[in-house]
Every structure is written in C-alpha cells, then in structure tokens.
Computed example of a mutant assay.
Amino acid sequence: MRFLARVLTVPLLTVPFVLSGPPAQAAAPGVHVVTTHDTFAEYRPGEHAVTYRPELVPVGARARVLSVSTPGLGTTTRLAVTGLLPDRAYGAHVHTDPCGATGAAAGPHYQHVPDPVRPSVDPAYANPENEIWLDLTTDRLGRGAALSRVDWRFGPRRGKSIVLHEHHTATHPGHAGTAGARLACVDVPF
C-alpha cells in the first residue's frame, strides 16, 4: 500500500499541467484521488469555475487540481493556475461548499478540526496543518502552483471547492487564515 501511495504522489509535480477532460475520481484500495480542471468564467448556474473579480482573475484563466489521500500519509493537494495576473500573490484555500453566485457561497475554509468560533481567526485552528492552504505567486506569464501536505484525510465531511483570495494568508492571532477578498472559485469534489 505504501509503495502505491508513493507512486501516486510522484505525478503531483507534472500531471496538473497535462490533465484533460472532465473532473475525475480514481481510487485504489484506501487511496482517494481527485483531479479536476476548469476555465474561469463569469457566474451562471451550473458553472464550476467562477471569477468574481475578472480584473484580478481574468475570464479564461485556468485552474487544475490534483488531490491524493492515502492511509497513513494524509492528503497532498496541488493547485496549478494559468492566465492570472503576472508577478502577483494570491491566497487559496479549500472551502466547505461549492462555488456560487458570490464568493460567500463557498462557505468558510474547510478545517479538519473545526473552530467553534466563526469566523475562525485563531491560529490554533486557522493554520496550514488544520486547513489546506495553497497560496501562490504567479510568474511573469501569470502561471503559478502550490502544494499542500496535511497528515489527515477527509472523512464524511469534505471540502467542495478551492477559493482564490486577494493576497497570501495571514497567520497572526485575530487575522489567522484571512487572505482578503474572494476573487474566484473552482469546484473540487474532494
């Protein structure tokens, strides 16, 4: 089982740039693999990748996600984007709900151990070990990628989207987990 898990994590460095077709799920015993890719568009019902601020996440920009969960190793998630603004920092996190007409539709960040206080700004809960953070900075061509590794797997309660935010994620008390406005959202069936 461990050998298979290691083999499945190797493609995280290259696969997100070559995936094509509709969102897919593949699984070996105990391994959960999710891949999705989509092109950001303005909201309309049934849209799975939405930009709320086209001046910062242009219509036509693309997102690709690969997430692998394995027993004993946790969850590794890779986000790759193209077509964003060049040389710009973006925050990104897994959220509890699917994308919708506004950024708020995606709900709060998914937390493995939920903070009883909302909004969650306590670094004991809002941190990259309890949430999946995928902050990135684009290159001169507007491309960027991020990788998150956490030691847990999704249970019955699962994340349903990744939201791109205005800036990298804060970590200090009272602001932990905040990353500014919600710029765009892509559905991911974790």
Rank of each mutant, 00 (worst) to 15 (best):
C185V: 13
H95E: 08
W133Q: 00
G91Y: 07
A106Y: 04
F17K: 13
L164R: 07
H175D: 12
P189C: 00
L84G: 03
S120K: 02
H175Q: 15
R118W: 12
L141K: 09
P23V: 03
L73M: 10
D139S: 08
G30F: 06
P116W: 08
L79A: 01
T169Q: 05
L19V: 14
A61E: 12
G72Y: 02
L141P: 00
L136P: 10
V113G: 01
V18R: 09
R153H: 00
R158S: 08
T178Q: 15
L164P: 11
T75L: 13
A61I: 04
V81P: 06
M1R: 07
L147R: 14
T76C: 00
R157F: 09
P119F: 05
F190T: 07
C185K: 13
A5G: 14
L4F: 05
W152Y: 04
P114R: 08
P29W: 06
T39E: 13
G72L: 06
P98V: 15
V68L: 11
T36C: 08
L84F: 15
P86M: 07
V150E: 00
G180A: 06
H37E: 14
E42L: 15
T137P: 10
S148G: 00
R149Y: 00
S161I: 02
G21W: 12
E166V: 02
W133K: 01
R78S: 11
V65L: 11
G60R: 05
D187E: 09
Y90D: 12
V33H: 03
A105R: 13
T102L: 09
I162N: 11
R2F: 03
R182V: 02
L147Q: 11
L164F: 15
G155S: 13
H168I: 11
L19C: 01
V81C: 07
L183I: 04
P54V: 02
E129G: 11
P58C: 06
C99A: 13
R118G: 05
D87C: 05
G72K: 04
K160V: 00
P108Q: 11
Y52C: 12
F154I: 00
G60D: 08
G103N: 06
L13D: 14
F154T: 01
V121Y: 11
E47W: 05
T35N: 06
A145D: 14
H48R: 15
A41H: 14
A61H: 12
H95K: 02
P108S: 13
G100A: 11
D115W: 02
C99G: 06
V57A: 14
H37K: 15
G21S: 09
H95F: 05
D122G: 05
S161K: 09
G177Y: 01
I162V: 15
K160F: 04
H32V: 12
T76Q: 10
T76A: 10
P128N: 13
R6F: 11
S161E: 10
G72T: 00
V65I: 14
T51I: 08
L141E: 13
V10D: 07
R158F: 02
G72V: 03
T39H: 01
T138A: 09
F17W: 15
V31C: 01
P45K: 05
D38W: 06
